[in-house]
Write a protein that binds this DNA or RNA. Structure first.
Length: 264
DNA sequence: TAGTCTGTTAGACA
DNA sequence: CTGTCTAACAGACT
């Protein structure tokens, strides 16, 4: 799935496409994406105007008038687009908003989820309750408290209860920016490293949000997309900083890209 | 064919 | 109790 940046781009798009209006038609195309709710309940809910589109970590929160909240999680390939077609390829849930068109939750791999929560359920929704601070609200103290010396830094940062929204791509990119080895342990970081990390994370996301802003998020390797990243997906290429060779290796079970020249 | 993938979670293991 | 690994979810692509 998209990481924080891609979810944020969708959130901003929804502000334009949907806020202040309700759908006039709703189609549940694939019931598999619904969690703890039924197609009729979801269809009825989406007829209500969208009060506010919010984001927390990688979760998209659509607050409807009356208090219900639709919580989307895109997992690996989910996204929301706006177009003329009610049932495009990979469409799972569609709703028509006057003045904008068909908003469609598309999800090639069908791992994404849409949940309908009452105002009370939303207040105590567990995944959000235990989520760590957003990157722009992160402190060195909080981070160090949640990163024991023996733990891989990568594993700790991918843990959404430590910090919200960080994904596998952000790990490679931020480690490259800070010249950190992909398999560095938390105990190996200096005070300065921790400060740099807390400073760089929100800057990274802000830059990627800017570069990703468009009506339809294109994921790396997806047809028609270009790779906006410095090293993610670039093994074999030259490092733009030192000219070294970009390599990849498995760390914590997932691929990390890194420069063999400048990342100690 | 086997391996790969921007995510999350449960269960096995050391 | 801690941390890591694998599988599972599902589909397309190399």
């Amino acid at each position: 799935m998209p990481e924080l940046a891609e979810v944020e781009v969708v959130r901003r798009n929804l502000e334009r496409w949907w806020e202040g209006r309700g759908a006039s038609q709703v189609l549940v195309l694939d019931e598999k994406l619904l969690v703890d709710t039924t197609a009729p309940a979801m269809e009825e809910a989406l007829l209500r105007p969208l009060e506010k589109a919010d984001r927390r970590g990688k979760y998209l929160l659509c607050r409807l008038e009356g208090g219900q909240v639709v919580v989307f999680h895109f997992r690996m390939t989910g996204k929301i687009v706006c177009g003329d077609e009610a049932e495009p390829k990979y469409g799972r849930l569609s709703w028509f908003v006057d003045g904008s068109g068909w908003l469609v939750f598309k999800d090639q791999r069908r791992l994404g989820k849409a949940r309908l929560l009452s105002a009370e359920e939303f207040e105590t929704y567990e995944p959000l309750e235990r989520m760590g601070p957003e990157p722009d609200d992160l402190s060195v103290d909080h981070l160090r408290q949640n990163c024991s010396d023996r733990r891989l830094l990568k594993t700790a940062l991918l843990d959404q209860s430590v910090v919200a929204g960080v994904g596998n791509i952000a790990i490679s990119e931020v480690f490259w920016r800070l010249e950190l080895a992909p398999d560095v342990k938390c105990g190996q970081l200096s005070d300065e490293d921790w400060e740099n990390l807390v400073r760089e994370l929100p800057i990274y996301f802000e830059e990627i949000i800017k570069l990703s802003t468009s009506d339809e998020i294109k994921y790396v390797e997806e047809a028609g997309s270009s790779n906006i990243f410095q090293i993610y997906g670039r093994s074999g290429e030259e490092c733009s900083r030192c000219g070294g060779r970009i390599e990849k290796m498995k760390v914590g079970g997932r691929t990390s890209y890194f420069c063999g020249g400048c990342q100690r």
